[in-house]
Nucleic acid binder design. Sequence first.
DNA 1: CAAAGTTTGTCAAGAAATAAACAGGTCCGT
DNA 2: ACGGACCTGTTTATTTCTTGACAAACTTTG
Lengths: 212, 212
Amino acid sequence: MSKTTISNSVIRRLPRYYRFLGDLEANGYVRISSRELAEKMGLTASQIRQDFNCFGEFGQQGYGYNVTELRGEIGKILGLDKHTPMILLGAGNLGRALAAHIDFDNRGFKLIGIFDVDPELVGRKVGELEVMSSSSIESFCHEHKPVAAILCIPKDDAAKETERLINCGIKAFWNFTHYDLRLNYRGVLVENVHLGDSLTTLSYGLNTIEKK
Amino acid sequence: MSKTTISNSVIRRLPRYYRFLGDLEANGYVRISSRELAEKMGLTASQIRQDFNCFGEFGQQGYGYNVTELRGEIGKILGLDKHTPMILLGAGNLGRALAAHIDFDNRGFKLIGIFDVDPELVGRKVGELEVMSSSSIESFCHEHKPVAAILCIPKDDAAKETERLINCGIKAFWNFTHYDLRLNYRGVLVENVHLGDSLTTLSYGLNTIEKK
DNA sequence: CAAAGTTTGTCAAGAAATAAACAGGTCCGT
DNA sequence: ACGGACCTGTTTATTTCTTGACAAACTTTG
């Protein structure tokens, strides 16, 4: 029986399940039990079964789960069979690294445009794409209808540019700005990534260990 | 009264508090109440008070919290007054972007060395630092005693290199590899960053919204 | 083909995190 | 200087998340 609302904790674990199942598949696993998967992932078998059952019954008693089938189901749940068109704002170090490093095609997206205000960067090639001037965002969006955007721009520009992109029809933001986007209204999605916060957490850990 | 063990949920919120308090300070705020801060951050006042009280009593009844003082206290808790020496493995796109983009000095660390196996990259300048050959890691660590390491290397090298670094005295890993480091034993810390998982979550969101 | 061994899906208990409530101080205007 | 408004620290309640338990069902083995 699949649940009506899925808790955030469960959703956050799904990509990790998907990743592990991909590894298992690559290593020739055909079936896996919740107990064995739990051991590999450092979770409890109970939690894994309950997580999966939020979406349906994918396993078989006495057998376990078929790795390929389960991975496919989770992929569908995550929308990884899609290729939602996405643009990148900011072709600085981080923006270029993401464009080159992230496997958009296998994560439900397709990167179709890169923009920057800096004339030095405009025209430069980043992978297959050529950096375009930020001033052409409106016309580009009108023509190609991107749905998602990556923000790798200075903090102070974030609010303004976000507003602009929403007017261009952008529905989802992957935000690397040092700014907490909060637009839970209007059906716009935001995934804030604060790399600095992540590093800070590590600092806390070191600081705390030392005191013991 | 400060608690003995701090829950992970609280720790994950600390960097964000620190960030918001920095913004408030920059905007001339001298004092702030939990109610007002809660409103700005999208939390409840109760949670904020309870979070802070894990570490001590920083506020005053009828007044609130002194922004600068509170920020300082949280900074100390997070160990941001330290400059723990850190090295970077992997000077590819992502590694170079992190080296350039992250404000290590204000997050408790100091980046003191960058390494790569690729002879093409060795010798290249990344900010102030020059990329060194991975073969020199041991001698470098012997001399400069780094405590933390960033991993921006291929997935398949992660396990081996981690082992190697632990033997060099590394105690904390900031892992960008597509590989879940789990070394909770031996007092070694790991902060896994899975950018792909983050993007996948956004895909889920879009996929789910559409179905409504 | 039957019995033994697995493993799921689900329900119920337990633990953890969050929110509400409130007593006891502090601030501020008059 | 006094009363009302305000705010923290802490206790209590509520909600959410995780773990444990078990019946039902499938697989494997002799």
